[in-house]
């Protein structure tokens, strides 16, 4: 079943057409890969889906509801969480505080209680432990390396527990061992019913964990299918390497 879908999205920046009539569907309960050459509009699509950008035309639907003009917080409240390609953490807060921010609380009274509640703390530490940042938990997050910041972002998005997670290049700057570990966790969470949409250039990673892969090219969907099929499709190669390739072949 389609969980999150975009339909005929157009987004222009001045003369640049970042998205041209992009239509795509992401399946509930799946790990969806989203690949495409640099500048093909993947990040822009994420921005449109999560309320950071309003498309010039087109529609974004989540569980059949129109969320095109929703703000980022409304999108999150609907159950869609994301990470950013250039990580966005809270640099002046400590690592552990960063994770606590993502812990959800409902109601004014709960908001006014101490941020460091035992149950939330346990979850925060568990998630930090998972990405191997426990010993840095009292450091300001801004002092972490780029890879560590990516992991931190992953850690707090896990604590936020959205139903759908959009990950923009989670593997960038993360070492291979940890990346495997990350892949394992994604699969685990997926088993509990979390849907993933992952933008990634690391093909091995994508092919290893994704059930379904969509390819973007020049702002619109090129094709989608099972990883093995996509991997061997000539059109995908062409998109990545430029049109000249087919002529050479």
């Amino acid at each position: 079943m389609t969980l999150l879908g975009v339909e005929g999205i157009v987004k222009n920046y001045g003369g640049i057409q970042a998205l041209r009539n992009c239509t795509m569907n992401f399946q509930e309960g799946a790990i969806n890969g989203l690949i495409g050459p640099n500048g093909s509009g993947k990040t822009t699509l994420f921005n449109v889906m999560t309320g950071y950008e309003t498309p010039d035309s087109g529609k974004v639907t989540f569980r059949g509801k129109d969320i095109t003009n929703s703000t980022p917080d409304e999108v999150f409240a609907a159950g869609i969480g994301r990470t950013f390609q250039l990580t966005r953490i809270f640099p002046r807060l400590t690592v552990i505080e960063n994770v606590h921010i993502a812990a959800q609380r409902k109601g004014l009274v709960a908001q006014m209680r101490q941020w460091s509640q035992p149950d939330e703390r346990a979850r925060a530490l568990e998630s930090l432990d998972f990405v191997g940042l426990t010993k840095l938990s009292r450091e300001p997050a801004g002092s972490l390396s780029y890879g560590q910041q990516k992991l931190l972002e992953f850690a707090f998005i896990m604590v936020a527990e959205p139903k759908v997670m959009l990950l923009d290049e989670p593997a960038g700057g993360v070492n291979p061992t940890l990346l495997k570990h990350l892949g394992g966790r994604i699969k685990e969470l997926n088993k509990t019913g979390v849907t993933f949409i992952i933008v990634e250039h690391d093909m091995e990673f994508v092919m290893g964990i994704c059930d379904q892969v969509s390819v973007m090219h020049q702002g619109s969907a090129l094709l989608e299918g099972k990883p093995e099929i996509v991997r061997n499709d000539p059109a995908v190669l062409e998109a990545y390497l430029g049109t000249d390739m087919t002529e050479v072949n």
């Binding site: 950071y52 980022p72 807060l93 921010i101």
Partner: peptide, 20 residues
């Protein structure tokens, strides 16, 4: 938690929004 949210806004307001 409210205060922590305020500090999160200080550091990156948009990010804070997308964390609910």
């Amino acid at each position: 938690k409210f205060g922590l949210s305020l500090l999160a806004i200080r550091d990156d307001e948009d990010r804070a929004r997308s964390l609910g």
